[in-house]
Design a protein around this nucleic acid. Sequence first.
DNA 1: TATGAATGAGAATTCATTCAT
DNA 2: CATGAATGAATTCTCATTCAT
Lengths: 215, 215, 215, 215
Amino acid sequence: MCTFASEHSLTFMETILSKRQTEIIDAAIKLIGEGGIQALTIKNLSAEIGVVEGAIYRHFKSKIEVLSTLLDFLGHIIVSHYENVGAMKADSFTKIQKMISGQLKLFAENPPYALVILSDGLYKNEKTLHDKIFQIMQKAKSTFINIIEEGQKSGEIRTDIASDQIAFVIMGSVRLKVNQWSISGFSFDLQERGVILISTIKTLIQAQKNDDINK
Amino acid sequence: MCTFASEHSLTFMETILSKRQTEIIDAAIKLIGEGGIQALTIKNLSAEIGVVEGAIYRHFKSKIEVLSTLLDFLGHIIVSHYENVGAMKADSFTKIQKMISGQLKLFAENPPYALVILSDGLYKNEKTLHDKIFQIMQKAKSTFINIIEEGQKSGEIRTDIASDQIAFVIMGSVRLKVNQWSISGFSFDLQERGVILISTIKTLIQAQKNDDINK
Amino acid sequence: MCTFASEHSLTFMETILSKRQTEIIDAAIKLIGEGGIQALTIKNLSAEIGVVEGAIYRHFKSKIEVLSTLLDFLGHIIVSHYENVGAMKADSFTKIQKMISGQLKLFAENPPYALVILSDGLYKNEKTLHDKIFQIMQKAKSTFINIIEEGQKSGEIRTDIASDQIAFVIMGSVRLKVNQWSISGFSFDLQERGVILISTIKTLIQAQKNDDINK
Amino acid sequence: MCTFASEHSLTFMETILSKRQTEIIDAAIKLIGEGGIQALTIKNLSAEIGVVEGAIYRHFKSKIEVLSTLLDFLGHIIVSHYENVGAMKADSFTKIQKMISGQLKLFAENPPYALVILSDGLYKNEKTLHDKIFQIMQKAKSTFINIIEEGQKSGEIRTDIASDQIAFVIMGSVRLKVNQWSISGFSFDLQERGVILISTIKTLIQAQKNDDINK
DNA sequence: TATGAATGAGAATTCATTCAT
DNA sequence: CATGAATGAATTCTCATTCAT
């Protein structure tokens, strides 16, 4: 049995969170993975780590804080993936491909992450939580935009569409793919389908060779 | 105060639902619009229409049935929009533009519809409800695919990407736009942004004039 | 599909009850037969006869009155059976055997009757209802006592035990048999088992031949 | 005010149940005693012990579990009484007398026990609960049969009727006595009447002295 | 007579949170 | 740090009954 949180981003967990807090976040992710966000109750959470309900409140001051921390953790993982790819030395398409496939790999290996990220009404429509998800998406967007602009400069990517528009289309289609996978009960191979999607995206956004010739 | 349900699809409401049922669905939509799906409780619902809680059960046998009917209603509106566009005499891009702008117009005028459609865990992860949403998306997909294939045959739309892949990318980006709008608290003009999105999509998927020339 | 009430005691039903009332009592018995007394709700009752809930109150002023009438009807059937046997020309054992087997036959053919008769807390512990059941049992008791006293006089039945005690033991064992049958979900042949019980009772209560000889 | 549960079977209560659980079972028994099984609601139960409704669920996971535990407790008391009598060194009639009078004493002192044992539809016709009552009755039957067979071997009890038939008749008449007592609102002295019943039973089932002489 | 609609009371259960020990 | 217990508010749903039409 793998513990989700502790696999990733040890730095984050170790420095920011106590052992028990890590355990709680781990359990929260597991619960969400098994039964959706509505399975994440304080009762289930405490049962999962073998303590009494009140004990949770020694480590987090409310359920919202649990979710907030969970999103911090998740955001940290995802964003650091973006940064790694962003800092890579490679052509734009390779980077885009890495961005998407890395993301899908993360979700494929940790379905609960997908559930959390896709989840709209996380808890009582808490703005704080919405914002965190929004932040993550913003980061993804800016990373994509940078990559795309590089590609446009280098002539790899078409220039007749603004970089943010291209980024938007990519993100939308990746997100929908993850969404379908989640709704389907994770019943297909996300990474496999991702390969097709990446190829579609590449075809869509690559600069036309003909253009250069004709000019 | 506008009543959402009664605006649209009078046939559906009149033939299938009683006056009170329509009123309840209306109220349900309003509640969801104001406070998300979690604001849709039997108590709120009954208070909204000024009756006692138990009275709801004279008109719907359970909360699930309320939601199910709501989705039927919503599905009916959306799908009939698809069908109208599908049956139009127009070039593919016009159709695609109508498909998207009509959809966004619907949501812009009825934000709760967006919340419902985007919602993952509507109620207790009821499969019945999931399925209805899934059906609507399937219908959208097949409509898009038909239009795209027409466009590919007529030379309007690029043929180097499979029609279902194109449809997928379109749907993903439209969905993400609605999503952002919803998360932002409906704070920007959905239709306005939609115009840009449509133009982006058009540019992305149109056949390259150059191709023909060069061949 | 047999209608319980209308089979028996037409006089009672025709003279005392209206057609609709008979129908309601019929339905009540059917419901109790299918799901116990807790299945007898006004909702189920009205659904069974195809009217609206309020309509029941045109014919009975309350649920208690439905049950009360039901017990009257049932009492009438049972008591008239007692009276028939009581008036028979036959030896005591034949009469006792007829009393018991007739009763068991009635229940075997109409399981709901057994459920009603055995039911302790019919509805809100209504004293009125309790009393009716009590009356029926009293009538059974006095009939048995009469028969037994006849038998004691004629030398068929032992005289070392008071007639009411004998009656009591008989009723207790018959009742327990019906009880077991009911709890078992009517899963054995009540009449078949009754034959054994009757024979046991006969052996228990018959006068010892030896006694007379030895005296 | 006497607390029913804590009087009996301290071992059972102490080892299996917490203090609060005992208190709840106590209160449940009291409520049933006062108003029948339908008086046993979570609301009444919590009010009785002075807590809020939800607090019950810290100690029992459902109402069914409350009733189930109550039956376990009751079964434990009754069955251990059977076992005590069964293990006694005494002639069969003494044992039978002890069996019956002990049982009646228990009920006389705790009328709710009678209500529970006699109750048909304890709660939603839960099979689990039915079964527990059935088990208790089975145990009573087998204890009686053993005693009777001893008596038949020793020549105390008549042998012309099968032991299980005799046991059945005894149980039926005891049960009916308790039943009448319960229906009457506990208005007569159960133990006093029991004495007469026991004597009747004894006379009914004892071996005839004359038989031996005549043989 | 019957319908359609509503009422009011009450049912069991769940949930996040608090607090004394 | 954790437990055990409780709170209070909310949730879905059921039931007998009433009443205008």
